[in-house]
């Protein structure tokens, strides 16, 4: 069964008198261990799709099931705790908390849910080591390079051990060498840890690491490979 499943999801915004159809009957399924890319031009509806899949935005029609749970009827408060438990976000660079060191960035996720145990700490260190950050535990975000920061963000997304990982333009501000490195790591972690990962990107060079590629154009989602 797919860990993340969007069935006939539509989203329309009211913009003045007219209604804008941002997403038209999108259907998408991601299995465990897969990295799926969504590409498309600006304004095509990629971020709308990601926001809906990430339980940040309510759809107008359709159903979203994450790890077997339908999220359509959850309240804002329930959604927050749902995101904390079931979803890992990798956001654009600079979305780390500026006043926390690398290790604390990861532990923050655990703090949000309650207490930090010794095992959590070990897990965080293990994740960071896998991502090549073993000597950066105590560094602040502004002491890291763009690539390192994004690797911390990946580690943070895996920290709560959720089944679904959502990445929003994770390579947006990286040069191609670093970008490739980051996506490679993301694909590797998703596979090894059996997660369902979606990545929204502009960058066609990253597609070599993805199991499936979807293209979004004017709100219509089509599978490319």
């Amino acid at each position: 069964m797919a860990l993340l499943s969007l069935q006939n999801v539509s989203k329309s915004y009211k913009e003045g008198a007219s209604t804008v159809q941002a997403l038209k009957q999108a259907t998408l399924e991601v299995e465990a261990g897969e990295l799926v890319a969504i590409i498309g031009p600006s304004g095509s509806g990629k971020s709308t799709l990601l926001s809906i899949a990430g339980a940040l935005l309510q759809m107008s029609e359709g159903t979203v099931e994450i790890n077997g749970m339908n999220i359509v009827h959850l309240s804002a408060k329930q959604l927050a705790s749902f995101r904390l438990k079931e979803l890992g976000f990798i956001l654009q660079t600079s979305n780390l908390v500026p006043y926390l060191n690398v290790l604390d960035q990861l532990l923050l996720v655990k703090k949000m849910g309650g207490k930090v145990t010794k095992d959590d700490k070990e897990f965080a260190k293990q994740l960071l080591t896998e991502l090549g950050l073993s000597d950066k535990f105590k560094k602040m975000p502004n002491e890291l390079s763009g690539g390192e920061r994004q690797r911390v963000a990946i580690a943070r997304a895996f920290m709560n051990n959720s089944k679904v990982i959502l990445a929003d333009e994770p390579t947006a501000s990286l040069d191609s060498k670093r970008a490739l490195e980051v996506v490679k790591l993301l694909a590797k972690e998703a596979k090894e840890r059996n997660k369902a990962a979606i990545m929204v990107t502009h960058d066609e060079r990253m597609l070599q690491f993805c199991d499936h590629v979807y293209r979004m154009e004017d709100g219509v989602l089509t599978q490319q490979s």
Binding site: L84, V109, M112
Partner: peptide
């Protein structure tokens, strides 16, 4: 923006 990120990750208003 910072709080937005935290809320996206799953921080509650209370936190």
């Amino acid at each position: 923006q910072q709080f937005g990120v935290m809320k996206a990750i799953g921080a509650s208003n209370g936190f």
